[in-house]
Design a protein around this nucleic acid. Structure first.
Lengths: 345, 345
DNA sequence: ATGAAAGCGCTAACAA
DNA sequence: TTGTTAGCGCTTTCAT
């Protein structure tokens, strides 16, 4: 119980036990240089006997590489980012890298604090999934200035000189609107998050689909909401219902928002999809709602994998060209929240 | 663009610019020993001028503390663990610690690999949220053997000499069953995960409530399922329906399982809660389903906070006594998936 | 109040 | 093939 930290055996201890010099031990462990079969056996035996674990800290000090990457995100509890994190981590650990989690809770102060810590820890690279306000640019600069590779994975706008993985949100918006139009809808409300690049791309997509179909899209049908949250979805849906523009369908900027809308519609005595169709976005919660949400599927896990890959390319110096941009395809996932509009409405 | 890693300024560079010795710079940064106001000013100015960031790696090598903790969990994409992670990280970062995320995907091999990496990285402590099979004991021992503090946060059984934070699952089972009994239910099916301590505690709680009420609880009403997943919930619900024991309510071992059951019931043409009541467990998805799930609320975020606190106590040597166990209270969260059983059924 | 110097554990250039 | 040595950036003891 009262076992105070046992000193870890060092390369020197191993050398002593094996009866060779520390550098020979180093060579065996590192697998470089020449070592006789005999030395190898003895070193290996000594390592096992002592339970030797190489000290990554000392190694990093020497090599100036920590085999550690930082992931800055709004909140891990949002499945969208958790899935990215999972992807990141899978690739990272397959390459012997560890991931430091930095869930910023969208607080500016915490974010820059995390930035400082990551810098001090001398991480080898950073993945960013943060909303695209100006502070992100400064943050990213604080990394790139020091030659640290950065990859943006969803969230912010393009940052000069930084690799980026995103999804084709505009096409997502297009697909959603198209689907509704095909079902016969003509008055489609959109819940868009104010200041969000993602939302404005979705809107662009919707506009294109509506224009292609020759359907009108008055400004009234777009409601600006404060955030990508269920609460914001509630308020947004209420506003939309009260505007009197009489929509027969709603496109939300993410599933959480759609969830809020679903609740409000239920309260209002409207049946989904009979009285009102709803389309979500991102496919995080869509399978779990009732009715199940028709939504736009985003390959978040995949995005995480690719982001890690791009980052490792830079870290291991396998790529040093211009900033790359990977745009992942999205897909319409049809479930049960869309139906043709009621006749005469 | 082609900015290859710029060398970080060191304490020596700062010393040179400030016109003092490296040790003086060290004293100013570390805030120990004596330094004249004048030196302080010059050092601070030099630091700012050079954009100096202390090197945590070098610091750790010297101090033998990395201010880093590891979190081993099954999957970040499970909100239950994501919430714990969030809590952990909040406390950790408030104390200047970073969290290394180790999402094991429940693969034994990956788990021990992560263990090795954490050991090599010389983390100061470890939080474990892993299922309680025998491998966890070995894993935990590999840490404690080296004097590394470990805290278990949900998941496994008690590990000798290791602090632990859990929730009162048994009482949760009791509350769930009691609630159903109060509504008039007498044949309550339980979906229990095979080999899970949590599930067996929930079962114990149910048994107690049923016994208190003098209600029979034949073995048939308990279905063993393979995992805490939606799929397992589906299969479990199907089995339960086919057994002919005619339950009027179901208690699931977590919300995800309940979700699966909800789907199966819907397919079977059964209305929830009119034809069948359902109670979830853990309150991760409950608010988002339709009907909204009545469930047992677990304070996961809180658990993360406390786990981090216990761990930091050990790390900073503020506590060195016997293993502690914190049992968090649970609560019944009433939503819309429970109603009295149909008359005559 | 400040500087010089040793050493944390490892790597790597050089010597033997 | 192996050993010796210097040094990564920082902390800290010991002199000054």
């Amino acid at each position: 119980m009262h076992d105070r930290p046992v000193r870890h055996p060092t390369i020197k201890d191993v050398a002593l036990v094996a009866g060779v010099s520390p550098s020979t031990v180093g060579r065996v462990i590192g697998g470089y240089g020449y070592t006789s079969a005999e030395s190898q056996q003895r070193v290996l035996a000594a390592m096992r006997q002592l339970g030797y674990e190489p000290n990554a800290v000392a190694r990093s000090l020497k090599s100036k590489r920590t085999r550690t990457i930082g992931y800055l995100l709004p909140r891990v509890t949002n499945p969208f980012f958790a899935q990215i994190a999972e992807g990141l981590q899978d690739v990272a650990s397959a390459h012997g890298y560890s991931v430091i989690l930095c869930s910023t809770d969208m607080k500016m102060e915490r974010t820059s604090e995390f930035g400082r810590v990551l810098l001090e820890h001398r991480v080898d690279g950073i993945v960013l999934s943060l909303p695209g306000d100006d502070s992100v640019f400064k943050l990213a600069a604080s990394f790139t200035d020091r030659g640290l590779p950065v990859v943006v994975c969803h969230g912010s706008r393009r940052i000069h000189g930084v690799d980026r993985v995103i999804s084709d949100h505009m096409h997502g918006g297009y697909l959603a609107a198209k689907h509704l139009i095909n079902m016969g809808h003509e008055r489609i409300g959109v819940l868009a998050v104010k200041g969000s690049t993602t939302s404005s791309l979705i809107l662009d997509g919707c506009r294109k689909a509506l224009k292609d179909a020759g359907v009108d899209f008055p400004a009234q049908l777009t409601v600006e909401i404060a955030s990508f949250s269920e609460d914001a979805g509630c308020s947004g849906a209420r506003v939309l219902l009260m505007r009197g523009c009489d929509p027969t369908a709603i496109i939300a900027s993410n599933d959480l928002i759609a969830l809020g809308a679903l609740g409000v519609l239920e309260e209002a005595g409207l049946n989904v999809p009979a009285d009102m169709s709803v389309i979500g976005f991102d496919n995080t919660f869509a399978a779990h709602t009732r009715p199940r949400l028709t939504t736009i599927g985003i390959s978040t896990y995949q995005a995480g994998l690719i982001a890690a890959q791009l980052l490792l390319d830079r870290i291991e110096d396998n790529y040093r060209g211009e900033a790359r941009e990977v745009v992942l395809p999205v897909e319409l996932v049809v479930r049960g929240s869309v139906a043709p509009p009621r006749r005469g409405s």
